[in-house]
Nucleic acid binder design. Structure first.
Lengths: 149, 149
DNA sequence: TTTGGTGCAAAACCTTTGCATTAGG
DNA sequence: CCTAATGCAAAGGTTTTGCACCAAA
């Protein structure tokens, strides 16, 4: 009874591995903004009419992050935000605290200064966190009207 | 009967205002390293033999921060760290993730770049987070011995 | 008495985890 | 049958908050 080849099943298994993963990816692919797990969970319920559990959203996002399919960014309130990764490498962003829109910000020269400063002071295992937060033009226009003019 | 001047009482009231505040300040003043509220609470119990509650430590630290007497810094694991403020103004530090030692790191030119970049992109209410973490020479020397030599 | 500092327990909040259930091959 | 995904509830960890109590003036 020639058992089905294990290797041949692999793609199928992978495709089926996470029933919800494709939905999460679809929600992420709506745009390139950073979103929290909870926002995604909400989107999946409303826009995508799925009944996925929040826990599963977290699990799938963690797996996708490990696989470098999504990248994460910390929000001002320390939540983790996720978005589809467009290329490889680690970047720093100017992030809209309202809509999650992100503008890549070059920091290489500054990072070099950090490293030389750190080694000059005898520090090892240097790591850094550079996050810029603001309100993008679109979000600012929408909310900066205390009363109707 | 010239009632005591209310203003004259102010210092006394202030001194008494927080029974534990002086202890917390004493614990902070042991050195200029950044410490978490929980570390301070532990110190107060052990070294200072006080029985202050953790909640109160948090409350006092929050008040001192508001009064600009202490400054805060976020640890790599997002805990809030506190230390006595030596001068006014906001600074960024290279922080030892083991002992809380901090080296001030000048970032003004970089901050200017951030602001111009942000306004060029139409973002408002810009804020940023620049934190550098490492292991200082002393801590590195102490812990980088997997087994006794 | 009045004000407000204090302690304890519980809540808040995001994220992870334990465990039993279920889906799919 | 067997593996792995899933859902639910609960835990984890830091910081805050509600509430009763107590201390000082």
């Amino acid at each position: 009874m020639t058992p089905r080849l294990r290797d041949a099943n692999a793609p199928a298994r992978r495709a089926q591995r996470a029933r919800w993963q494709s939905s999460v990816l679809a929600a992420l692919k709506r745009d390139d903004h950073f979103r929290s797990a909870q926002q995604l969970h909400l989107d999946l319920h409303t826009t995508f009419a799925t009944s996925i559990a929040l826990t599963t959203v977290y699990r799938i996002l963690r797996r996708l992050t490990t696989q470098q399919i999504v990248e994460t960014q910390r929000a001002e309130n320390d939540e983790l935000l996720y978005r589809i990764r467009d290329d490889s490498g680690h970047h720093h962003y100017l992030l809209c605290r309202t809509c999650g829109r992100a503008e890549r910000f070059a920091v290489e020269p500054f990072e070099r200064r950090i490293d030389s400063f750190a080694s000059a002071h005898g520090y090892a295992d240097i790591d850094h966190r550079i996050d810029i937060y603001g309100t993008c033009a679109e979000c600012h226009a929408g909310s900066s009207r205390p009363t109707k003019t």
